[in-house]
């Protein structure tokens, strides 16, 4: 199958997958015991007000109608209204998502780069002290709770040393860069505001390092095991026997072939991160999707929860699609 038809069919196949996910989310929220509207109010409420509340949110309609309205709404980017103030959920998502995306991208880069470098290093020195130390480092970072590491780092760098800020995305005394993509580092560069760029980077460092360290354990481990296996493969030994340079064998031969499982893991982890690294965002008061959904849960805002979860579902589908396309771009055996 040609690359083109692979891409087309893979995209076509993503559509039923997303539909299935959306339907699943909708019905899970509906079949949960208790009336969402009633549950929203903690105290008794006037029946007339409750009926009005239901009507505004469309909860008075029969389930099939609700389902159709819900799907139709999603088609035009309507994720429903919040139970709290009837504001469109999509506005909240748009406001919050860039923060999550920015943190996800940088911490992922940090984790992947550090993980691969250490993993490769470890595999090349298999069964040495270096190897064992790196493995231990990977296990510790993987096992350490993210809020604990976050607090320790905050304590050291923000409280004792006072070299880095902590909490929120930007210095509260100043106006953040104008919104273009919503990612402060990008927007500040696009507007040529170097000062704002430096500020946003400083605010990013602690949450990025925290999340990145916790994540890099997986990548160290995965890179190391796959590299060890690949370095023993016939084609690597054959390349050594042809006198190719060490770096060529390590990267062009071993790492390229060991990379596919790593790519899968990047996709999976990235999807999880996009859904909001809840603990990290809470620890650093990061105004992303994670803190948003925690807040909505606390308010029993069912429609907002549904809207956010649906958004996650679409994100996961998109990320898996991208990973599959990257796979094809990467591996000639899929392409041809």
């Amino acid at each position: 199958m040609s690359l083109k038809s692979y891409v087309v069919t893979r995209i076509l196949l993503a559509i039923p997958m997303v539909l299935l996910l959306l339907t699943f989310v909708f019905f899970v929220i509906r079949v949960m015991p208790g009336d969402p509207a009633l549950l929203h109010f903690e105290r008794r409420v006037d029946p007339a007000a409750l009926a009005e509340f239901r009507r505004r949110l469309g909860l008075d309609q029969p389930i099939p109608i609700q389902y159709i309205t819900y799907l139709g709404g999603l088609f035009v980017g309507n994720f429903g209204l919040s139970m709290q103030d009837f504001s469109p959920i999509v506005d909240h998502l748009i406001a919050r998502f860039p923060a999550t995306l920015e943190l996800a991208i940088y911490s992922m880069l940090f984790a992947v780069i550090l993980g691969i470098i250490l993993g490769v290093f470890s595999s090349k020195r298999y069964d040495s002290t270096t190897d064992h130390s790196i493995r231990l480092f990977g296990i510790i970072t993987y096992a350490i709770p993210v809020f604990f590491l976050g607090m320790i780092l905050q304590l050291i760098f923000a409280v004792w040393l006072r070299v880095l800020p902590s909490g929120t995305r930007f210095d509260p005394h100043y106006v953040p860069p104008p919104r273009i993509t919503g990612l402060y580092t990008i927007d500040s560069l696009l507007t040529g505001n170097l000062w704002a760029f430096m500020v946003s980077v400083r605010y990013l460092i602690l949450p990025t390092v925290t999340l990145g360290l916790v994540l890099c354990g997986i990548f160290i481990r995965l890179t190391r095991t796959n590299m060890i296996e690949t370095l023993r493969k016939d084609f690597v030994v054959a390349a050594e026997a042809r006198g190719l340079s060490d770096s060529r064998i390590t990267y062009q031969y071993a790492l390229r072939n060991a990379f596919l499982p790593i790519l899968t893991m990047i996709g999976l982890q990235f999807a999880v991160l996009l859904a909001g690294a809840v603990l990290t965002e809470t620890t650093f008061s990061w105004p992303g999707l994670g803190t948003y959904i925690v807040d909505r849960i606390a308010h029993r805002d069912y429609t907002a929860i549904q809207g956010t979860v649906v958004f996650y579902a679409i994100l996961v589908a998109v990320v898996t699609l991208i990973v599959d396309l990257l796979y094809a771009a990467f591996d000639p055996r899929i392409r041809f």
């Binding site: 493969k233 016939d234 084609f235 026997a241 042809r242 031969y253 390229r256 072939n257 055996r333």
Partner: peptide, 15 residues
Amino acid sequence: LAYIFQDPMTSLNPM
């Protein structure tokens, strides 16, 4: 010094 291995199926870089 050149060396040829037993299994040609696995001796070339698949990428």
